[in-house]
Simulated scan of single mutants.
Amino acid sequence: MIYDLTILSLLPNTLGAVMPVLPEAYASFSATGRPLGAFACEFGTLNRFAFLTAYEGVEAIAEERARLMTAEDPYKIGAHLACVTSTAFKPLSFAKPITPGTYGPFYEFRTYTLAPNGLAETEAAWAKIIDRRHEMSPLLTNMASIEEGPQRMVHIWPYQTIEARMAARAQASKEGIWPPPGGSGRLTNLQSELFVATSFSDLK
């Protein structure tokens, strides 16, 4: 399975025009992939939506990328877009398949940039503690980019409340499993953003 994370960045003061048509854009987002979730950024760079899509393999996502290159306005909100970024990811060995359901509505997207050849060491450290961390709050996925450029690892954590997030992270820190011991040595940049599932998202 390959996942695509597309970020739609809107021009200022365009939410009113975009929100009524965004559900349709999500439903028809990809010709070869399966929509999983649509999220609005709450804390981070605002006026951004994250669309998460599943593909059976690299051939399917390549076909979709080719379609987008020739489409004039593939998302039907082109007049309101500031920019679009898409990145393909492969789930790490311990990541379970993403199953649509109600886990949020808050989703923390944590993006770590890895040093060259740093994924294996980082993944091994995470694998040792992830089961226990998952018991404290579920991990939706942890995935590594397969595009050119610096490799990024994105892990997504759903929470029912902000208080639940704080409690889970505090407990993990108290037990000494967070950050994962030995899992930070190959990281070069860390970023966290909080998204909220939209009403039409398959991941709630």
Rank of each mutant, 00 (worst) to 15 (best):
M1P: 09
D4W: 01
L5H: 11
L10S: 01
L10G: 00
N13H: 11
T14N: 04
L15K: 07
A17E: 14
M19E: 14
V21T: 09
E24W: 04
R34E: 15
R34I: 14
G37M: 07
A38Q: 10
F39W: 07
A40H: 13
G44E: 07
T45Q: 11
T45F: 08
A50N: 04
A54H: 06
Y55W: 07
V58T: 12
E59G: 02
E59D: 15
E59N: 14
E63R: 15
E64T: 05
R65T: 11
A66V: 06
A66K: 13
M69H: 13
A71P: 04
P74V: 02
K76C: 11
I77R: 00
G78A: 09
H80A: 12
L81M: 07
V84N: 02
T85R: 14
T85K: 13
T85D: 13
T87H: 13
S93G: 11
K96F: 03
I98P: 03
Y103K: 01
P105C: 12
P105W: 08
F106G: 02
E108V: 15
R110N: 09
Y112L: 11
Y112C: 01
A115V: 01
P116C: 02
G118Q: 05
T122H: 08
A124H: 09
W126T: 01
I130K: 08
D131K: 14
H134W: 05
M136W: 01
L139E: 02
M143T: 06
S145Y: 00
S145D: 00
I146D: 01
I146R: 02
E147I: 03
G149E: 10
M153P: 03
H155Q: 08
R165P: 00
M166P: 01
R169A: 12
G176I: 06
P180S: 13
R186A: 10
R186S: 13
T188R: 11
N189L: 09
L194C: 02
F200N: 04
D202I: 01
K204C: 08
K204R: 15
